[in-house]
Design a protein around this nucleic acid. Structure first.
Length: 842
DNA sequence: AGCACGCCGACT
DNA sequence: GTCGGCGTGCTC
């Protein structure tokens, strides 16, 4: 049989299956989804099997055998391989990139060489042609004639030539194989002896001197449970050496076993029972339960205001799904994957929950992943990539806060988890629930288009089957939504208040301090950063390799580039005018913190931003402290807006609502509305009523007015008008192509060629080149124009934007156009990066 | 992506 | 006359 293998070379030229013979010894083991090591162009690479066939498609003489099978259980299943193919096509990336994204990074194997002394050479030392005094040879003999080549290189860097020569002569045999980045963690474990009776007999007349050894043997006879070696030694107040002595006598056995890492080990999760649902929750639950039972693919948009109890509905729907013996995936934005959130799921489903997020070490993530693949977990809770959780029968996929842009991966494969989820649900006959208080316009339109008759892009995953809208307009227990006050900061200035706090916010904070209640302050950070500017001449420090300002890092007192890592010392004086009035503009939050301390002496502030949360676990620590009421104010960036639930928070202040409103991004208004609504939802979630104060210079902007009235519908109405007028999503779809190269002329030239090729291809396919405003299909090619960051890492960047509607096969046309630019080697002369459905147009 | 094969300049 | 520069082309 033949295995069709996608090798781990992410390039256009190798993005197709290569055929390999399956050796008899592996027959039956190698299947679709297996990870294998294969010889490829003179080296050994990792690859994924995407097909098994009786005959090769190439000349049998060219055929090489699969060198090794890398896992006993295939890390991918056929349906995941198929999903990978869909992703590669839709998002224009190599298949290997899509497949690799589905499994933990610990399983990215790299070739590794092992050398051993050949038997001939070992038998006949004189035939070695290597002076015996060569230290590497002595070392190799000590190691039993075998060692990793990398190790040899490391220890004997000066012996490279001599080792190479030995390999060339066949004195040393080189064997290449794939090694995972990470081995399973091994731990020595003590087992009772197989033959308990024999041990008992021996113990009876054993020497009195081996008291501790006997004690160990006795212990194992009594407990008969494997126990880690170190633990046993500790329990008996002895050393591992003693226990090894008992092993030598055959009284017990010591074996290496694998230790599973459990990031939540030792943390008790109180078991919770399902809560009684409100009428609104019940209606939604009934719909979901029916769909889950039907086991046919459906998409629901659960539009529930903040505090409407979406999570409880999720929990009960999952329970229903598990009863049907099917598994569930819950996607949560990375930033909202807080201990609070995890606790709710662990509390309900206990050990059946696997948690996947980026704060885990790669080993921990690997173990959580295996828990799923081996059927020891039935619910996966995680960020974006958890959509690939290797379950066999998925019944339900929940995407909480579905509007969050973090569901879009910014690196290749640039997939959107929401669209992948819908596709995966189709494979499994599963139900997708998109939950949000502020649904993305794409999802909202997909769920209402059939009724509202909106003509939209139509190619969207959610639109394909049409989503159903499930509204939850009320908070649980009839709690009111918090009152939102909008303060016009222009009036404050007019009245002589030049502080960053309006009188109302100042007053509000003061009152909370008096009453011992808590406040959350949000600084909409985009637009603020830690840059350096000279106050006399306006000079700002720029990266020499990228067209971007350097940011100031307080810890290292250095200036750093975000994009290429370039770092330099902080300047004492302005390099341009030599003035000493050069200033480091600290993070916005830092300034707010200082101001708070000045205005409210003794105030306890927790500041959460990139500076204070980079350390592992710090995020958690701050939230716990705040939850324990060890601080009066939680001050932070976007991260304080999401999913937090503290009973004593009665005031939410937004210091500057506008910073995100004027960004040159067509989603700016949507982002602002979502942020304001989300953060407002942090207040008054329990008994105490909440209040929100929003400071702005644009109080009449519809995003702010709508947020003030908790009026999603009116926001959408207004925003859709703009989007339709400007022909932006959801009334069209976008693909952004970025070209980069060191030579400016080449980038522009290739950009022109690409745009030309695309226009020609579209014309040849009978696709109109511009929007006629009648909802029919079209494809417009914009650019090339310089990218927002025109130079990065000394490479110039230009971009083309495809704007299209209807089923025009845009991704396919783009692939064809790129192929036309490619020379004989299959590679275009400039680097092209494709972003389908980009989230950031910035 | 690597690595080999292949055709033109500065060395023994 | 050879070593080696990195331009093109292939990898089952």
């Amino acid at each position: 049989m033949i295995a069709r293998v996608i090798v781990d070379v992410p390039s256009r030229a190798t993005d197709r299956p290569f055929d390999y013979a399956i050796p008899d010894a592996m027959a039956g083991w190698v299947e679709v989804g297996s990870r294998v090591g294969v010889p490829f162009g003179g080296r050994v690479l990792q690859g994924f099997v995407v097909g098994i066939a009786p005959f090769a498609e190439v000349d049998a003489r060219k055929l090489k055998p699969v060198a090794e099978l890398l896992d006993h259980l295939p890390p991918l299943s056929p349906d995941l391989v198929e999903l990978g193919q869909w992703i590669a096509e839709k998002y224009c990336c190599p298949l290997t990139t899509a497949l690799q994204a589905m499994i933990p990074s610990a399983l990215k194997g790299k070739a590794d060489s092992v050398v051993r002394l050949s038997e001939d050479a070992a038998a006949e030392p004189d035939g070695l042609f290597v002076a015996e005094e060569e230290p590497w040879l002595r070392y190799l003999r000590q190691q039993g004639g075998e060692a990793r080549l990398a190790l040899l290189q490391e220890r004997f860097p000066e012996a490279a030539a001599s080792v190479k020569a030995a390999i060339g002569r066949g004195t040393l045999e080189e064997r290449v194989s794939i090694r995972d980045r990470l081995a399973v963690r091994k731990v020595l474990t003590v087992y009772p002896s197989e033959d308990a009776d024999a041990v008992r007999a021996e113990l009876a007349n054993a020497s009195a001197r081996a008291a501790k050894q006997r004690e160990a043997a006795q212990y194992m006879l009594e407990h008969a449970e494997p126990i880690p070696l170190a633990a046993l030694a500790q329990a008996l107040a002895t050393t591992t050496g003693t226990i090894r002595g008992a092993e030598a006598k055959g009284w017990l056995a010591i074996r290496e076993t694998e230790q599973r890492r459990d990031p939540y080990a030792g943390r008790g999760f109180g078991k919770t029972a399902p809560l009684r649902l409100t009428e609104g929750q019940q209606a939604v639950y009934d719909e979901l339960a029916k769909a889950v039972d039907d086991a046919s693919p459906r998409v629901f948009l659960l539009h529930g205001v903040t505090g409407s109890g979406k999570t409880e509905v999720y929990l009960q729907a999952i329970e229903r799904c598990l009863k049907d013996d099917r598994q569930a995936i819950v996607l949560v934005p990375e930033i909202a994957l807080t201990p609070q959130m995890v606790e709710r799921f662990k509390g309900r489903f206990g050990d059946a929950v696997a948690v996947l997020h980026s704060r885990l070490s790669s080993g921990e993530r690997y173990d959580e992943w295996r828990k799923i693949r081996e059927g020891r977990a039935e619910v996966a809770v995680g960020a974006r990539s958890a959509v690939f959780a290797p379950f066999k029968r998925i019944g339900l996929i929940i995407i909480d806060e579905e509007h969050e842009s973090s569901y879009k991966q910014e690196e290749s494969p640039k997939y959107h988890a929401r669209d992948v989820a819908v596709r995966r649900a189709n494979q499994h006959g599963a139900v997708v629930v998109l939950g949000s208080a502020t649904p993305s316009l794409e999802s909202f339109v997909a769920a209402t288009a059939s009724r509202g008759g909106l003509e939209t892009a139509g190619e969207g995953a959610a639109a394909k089957r049409g989503a159903s809208l499930l509204p939850m307009p009320d908070r649980v227990a009839g709690r009111p939504l918090p009152k939102v006050h909008v303060v016009d900061m222009r009036d404050e200035l007019k009245d002589g208040n030049r502080s960053m706090f309006s009188r109302q916010l100042h007053e509000g904070l003061l009152r909370r301090l008096e009453r011992g209640e808590q406040s959350v302050l949000l600084l909409n950070r985009r637009g603020y950063s830690t840059f350096v500017m000279c106050r006399s001449c306006g000079y700002t420090a720029q990266c020499p390799h990228c067209d971007i300002s350097l940011t100031y890092h307080q810890k290292s007192r250095a200036l750093r580039c975000h994009y290429c890592g370039h770092a330099e010392q902080e300047p004492k004086a302005c390099p341009s005018c030599e003035s000493e009035h050069i200033r480091f503009f600290g993070t916005g939050t830092q300034r707010v913190e200082e101001e708070l301390a000045k205005l409210f002496p003794g105030i306890r502030v927790i500041r959460m931003d990139v500076d204070t949360t980079t350390e592992k676990g710090s995020h958690e620590k701050w939230l716990t402290q705040f939850g324990n009421r060890e601080a009066d104010v939680l001050l932070g960036t976007q991260m304080v807006a999401k999913g937090l639930d503290f009973p004593y928070v009665t005031l939410v202040g937004v210091i500057a609502a506008d910073t995100s409103l004027h960004l040159p991004d067509f989603r700016a208004a949507e982002k602002t509305f979502q942020l304001l609504t989300q953060v407002a939802g942090r207040a008054g979630r329990h008994e105490l009523p909440g209040e929100v104060i929003v400071q702005t210079y644009n109080p009449e902007h519809y995003a702010i007015v709508s947020a003030r009235h908790h009026d999603y519908a009116s926001f959408v109405r207004e925003e859709l008008k703009h989007r339709r007028f400007m022909a932006y999503p959801p009334f069209c779809r976008l693909i952004l192509v970025t070209l980069s190269h060191e030579q400016l002329a080449l980038v522009i030239g290739e950009g022109e060629k690409l745009a030309g090729a695309l226009r020609d291809l579209a014309r040849a396919a009978g696709i109109r080149g511009s929007d006629e405003g009648d909802g029919s299909r079209f494809m417009d090619v914009l650019g090339p124009v310089a990218s927002p960051i025109p130079r990065m890492k000394d490479r110039y960047r230009f971009q083309c934007m495809l704007k299209y509607r209807g089923n025009v096969g845009a991704a396919d046309l783009l692939q064809q156009a790129i192929a036309q630019l490619a020379g004989t080697n299959g590679q275009p002369p400039v680097t092209m990066s494709v972003d389908v459905d980009p989230q950031m147009i910035l």
